[in-house]
C-alpha cells in the first residue's frame, strides 16, 4: 500500500462517492487498507452529506423535470450517482453531467411523458444563460460601413429544438394539459437588464443561422442566406448575436 497522502486522498474520495457507501451496501465492499482506522459510520455520514449537496444543485436546476419524474426520481438519482462521479463543485457543470446522463438513459428507455427530454433540455438552457458572466456589449453599428466584423451567437441566447411545444410548462408549470406534439424551434435568452430568461419561438431560418454562429464567423461566408443584412440586424436588436471587438 502506498503511504503517499495523495493516494490516500484519492482512495478516500473514491470511497466517499461510491454508490456502495451511499446506499448502505458498504458491508459488501472490501475494506480499503488506505482508509484503515477511520470510522465507517462517520465516513457514510460524510458521503451522504456531500452527495446531498450535489443533488441539491441538480434539483435546483431541473425543478420541472423532477416534478415530472415523480416516483422515478429516487431511482434516477441513484443511477446518476452510480455512473457519474463528482468532478467539480460548480453547479452548472453538475447540471450538464445530469443532462448527459438523462440523454443517455432516455436514449435506451424513452421516458413518460414523451416531452420530458424537451423540458429537461430547456431547463439546462435556462441554467446556461443564467450562468453567463458579463458580456461586453457591442452594437452591430451600420453594417454597410467598411469591412464586416466577425459575429457569433451570444452565450445568453441558446437555440433549442423541441419535438413538443413545451412553452406552456414554463408559463403555467406542472399539472396543466399535455403540450402539443409540434416541432418547435426555440431560443432561450436572457437579454441585458432582464432577470428571468425568456423562451421564444423563432423561424427555421433564424434557428439555423444561430446554430451556425457558435463560433466567431465572418458574415461574408453566410452569403447564400436571403436578406442576410436585415436578418443580422434583427438578431442583433434581439441580443441574439454579438460582434467581435
Amino acid at each position: 500500500m502506498s503511504n503517499r497522502l495523495l493516494d490516500r486522498q484519492v482512495r478516500l474520495l473514491e470511497y466517499l462517492s461510491s454508490a456502495g457507501i451511499l446506499f448502505g451496501e458498504e458491508a459488501d465492499m472490501p475494506a480499503d487498507p488506505a482508509l484503515q482506522g477511520i470510522d465507517r459510520a462517520l465516513l457514510r455520514l460524510e458521503a451522504r452529506s456531500a452527495c446531498n449537496r450535489r443533488i441539491e444543485k441538480v434539483l435546483a436546476l431541473f425543478p420541472r423535470t423532477f416534478d415530472f419524474l415523480g416516483s422515478d426520481r429516487k431511482l434516477i438519482l441513484r443511477e446518476f450517482i452510480e455512473v457519474s462521479q463528482p468532478t467539480t463543485m460548480n453547479s452548472i457543470a453538475n447540471g450538464r453531467q445530469f443532462s448527459e446522463f438523462l440523454v443517455a438513459r432516455w436514449h435506451l428507455k424513452p421516458p413518460t411523458p414523451a416531452y420530458l427530454p424537451d423540458v429537461a433540455a430547456c431547463e439546462l438552457a435556462i441554467a446556461e444563460v443564467r450562468n453567463v458572466a458579463d458580456e461586453k456589449l457591442q452594437p452591430m453599428g451600420n453594417t454597410c460601413d467598411g469591412p464586416k466584423r466577425n459575429i457569433r451567437r451570444r452565450r445568453t441566447a441558446v437555440p433549442q429544438r423541441c419535438y413538443y411545444d413545451i412553452r406552456s410548462i414554463f408559463d403555467i408549470g406542472f399539472g396543466g394539459l399535455d403540450p402539443p406534439k409540434r416541432e418547435t424551434r426555440l431560443v432561450v435568452t436572457l437579454p441585458a437588464g432582464i432577470c428571468n430568461p425568456q423562451i421564444l419561438e423563432v423561424s427555421p431560418t433564424v434557428f439555423d443561422l444561430l446554430t451556425l454562429l457558435d463560433d466567431w464567423t465572418d458574415p461574408n461566408t453566410l452569403g447564400t442566406i436571403n436578406n442576410l443584412e436585415n436578418l443580422l440586424g434583427d438578431l442583433s436588436a434581439q441580443a441574439f448575436i454579438e460582434v467581435e471587438s
Binding site: L5, L6, Q9, V10, L12, L13, E14, L16, S17, E46, S49, A50, R53, R54, Q85, P86, T87, T88, M89
Partner: peptide
C-alpha cells in the same frame, strides 16, 4: 482542508492528517 484530487471534486471540506509533514 482538501476538497478534491485530480479529476474528482467532492465539494466538501475534508480534514488533513495533522502531522509535521502535512
Amino acid at each position: 482542508a482538501f476538497t478534491r484530487v485530480p479529476h474528482q471534486d467532492l465539494a466538501t471540506l475534508l480534514p488533513l492528517p495533522k502531522t509535521e509533514a502535512v
